[in-house]
Design a protein around this nucleic acid. Sequence first.
DNA 1: TCAATATTTCAAGAATAATTGAGATGACAA
DNA 2: TTGTCATCTCAATTATTCTTGAAATATTGA
Lengths: 120, 120
Amino acid sequence: MHEKQALDAFGALSQETRLRIVRLLVTAGPEGMSAGAIGEAMDSASSSRMSFHLSQLEQARLVESRREGRSIIYCAALVTLSGLVEFLMRDCCQGHPEVCNPAVAALSSCCEPTKGAPHV
Amino acid sequence: MHEKQALDAFGALSQETRLRIVRLLVTAGPEGMSAGAIGEAMDSASSSRMSFHLSQLEQARLVESRREGRSIIYCAALVTLSGLVEFLMRDCCQGHPEVCNPAVAALSSCCEPTKGAPHV
DNA sequence: TCAATATTTCAAGAATAATTGAGATGACAA
DNA sequence: TTGTCATCTCAATTATTCTTGAAATATTGA
């Protein structure tokens, strides 16, 4: 993860509709959701507005898309999300390992790390 | 962490100078740095510009400040950073615990979680 | 008190980003 | 091959955010 990519990702996440889309897709899991279904889950979203925000998210690599018949299916790009966290928190414990533990605890509430997984 | 607070935080992090400041302060640790010292670490930052960005960061609760003599010392607010991660990744493993492990591994590269720490 | 240092505040202009609505594209089914 | 559905693209308008420079505030030392 480079600075430019992180800036794009944070920029994408700083807009209400887009943040909601990402969180929706994070819970939706790897099957993802069609653009139309995402739009229905948002209040008052015209198709062009939805398309604009989805393409911003895709450019920022926070979501990925694939075509399935007439629909385009979007899903969250968890690799980018975790890269973002790592970029932001890198070197947070220079001599003070205790200070950044809350961040780890927060993520652990999601799920336990794979034993022996290579640290990114 | 509520949506509004998360939007403010992501908005604050989506600007080059501010993202650099946060990362600088994350590595600086709890002692923090004075506004002037932060400004010197940025290229071509006028004091008013620096003050504008620092106040944006403080409004987003990503940094905290205290006065020390003539200087104002800023340090990273790790509680907000970890809250942000938790907000973004909440419910990422609805039935699919394996998919979000990369995020945990990324954070673990920073430091190990405290044993028995309450999960946020 | 006066001058110097460190930082903030304010207003104006410049730069970026979001929304809207109309029209285009691509896939499928009759 | 025509019609319909799902989604995207484009250009214009509106809204938000950033930078600049001048002036204000707070702290300290002479």
